[in-house]
């Protein structure tokens, strides 16, 4: 049989490094124990996997580092429950499990030559991060690159080092913002909600927009994209659903006939308009 076989058993990874992003979010750098697996591990920006803590269980996270970083990969985890808190308890040297990569990926080569607009909210920057790094590695293949990143407050900003590096490049137009009231005396960015700031940035209407953030932000970013004149086929997001198998067999993550794990997690606004409103 030539079909991919899935036995739902993760491979062993070692926690290499833990980075506190915000008071409730940590990034973990993970490396497979098996050198052969480590060296051959490939994925595409937008794909995800399941992280296991033995004795607690597993849950889905997007891969938050770009495939061009070799030997390890990263996931960013916000503490919201039992499993994520067990992940937060992991320290460098600890054992975890990982299976993946699963799912489709962000459109990439087909956007060569286009203006790219990345719009992230809070921890929703995680799935965009590999795509942004990859895009910047192929910088000359794209038109203008915009990054709009917003968080609730100054304390909720993730990937500060990345944002600093992207913001410092003169071939990237980056704007950061915090929700009104989330600023402090040191804050030099914008104050306002992500969709408003996006409209203010006013990227050209022939851009490709890739967004991820809280579901409510995504809905408003879609409306802004429409106002800016972007085509629904050029507006891309990645959806979050509860998942168990990651491959389309456990029946959990469907929106209409589409399984987010297998047919997504990346969908265009055009594709989403054809789905029932159940996400």
């Amino acid at each position: 049989m030539s079909r991919p076989q899935e036995d739902l058993v993760p491979r062993i990874v070692r926690v290499e490094e833990v980075r506190q992003e915000t008071p409730d979010t940590r990034s973990l750098k993970l490396a497979f124990d098996d050198p052969a697996v480590r060296d051959n591990f490939t994925f595409k920006p937008g794909q995800f996997g399941l992280v296991s803590v033995f004795g607690v269980g597993e849950a889905v996270f997007c891969i938050a580092s770009p495939p061009i970083w070799k030997g390890f990969f990263e996931v960013s985890v916000k503490e919201v429950g039992k499993l994520t808190s067990a992940i937060h308890d992991l320290e460098p040297g600890d054992t975890a499990g990982f299976r993946g990569p699963y799912g489709n990926s962000f459109p990439y080569e087909e956007n060569f030559g286009r203006n790219m607009v990345f719009v992230g909210g809070g921890i929703g920057l995680a799935p965009l991060r590999p795509l942004i790094w990859q895009t910047l590695a192929d910088r000359d293949k794209f038109g203008d690159v915009y990054i709009v990143y917003g968080s609730r407050s100054v304390n909720d900003i993730v990937y500060r080092a990345d944002l600093e590096e992207w913001g410092g490049r003169d071939d990237v137009k980056m704007v950061t913002t915090v929700d009104p009231g989330g600023e402090d005396e040191t804050w030099k960015g914008e104050v306002g909600l992500v969709p408003q700031i996006l409209e203010k940035v006013n990227p050209p209407s022939d851009s490709v927009l890739v967004t991820c953030g809280p579901p409510i932000m995504i809905k408003f970013v879609f409306m802004s994209a429409k106002k800016l004149g972007l085509k629904p086929a050029d507006v891309v997001t990645t959806l979050e659903m509860k998942m168990k198998c990651g491959v389309g067999t456990c029946g959990r993550c469907n929106i209409g006939s589409r399984y987010v794990c297998r047919d997504g997690p990346v969908f265009t606004l055009e594709q989403m308009q054809a789905l029932p409103n159940e996400f």
């Binding site: 004795g55 607690v56 269980g57 168990k244 029946g251």
Partner: peptide, 12 residues
């Protein structure tokens, strides 16, 4: 055919 995946909990 839907299923859940869980660990026998709390054990190393």
């Amino acid at each position: 055919h839907c299923f859940d995946v869980i660990d026998e909990s709390g054990l190393s």
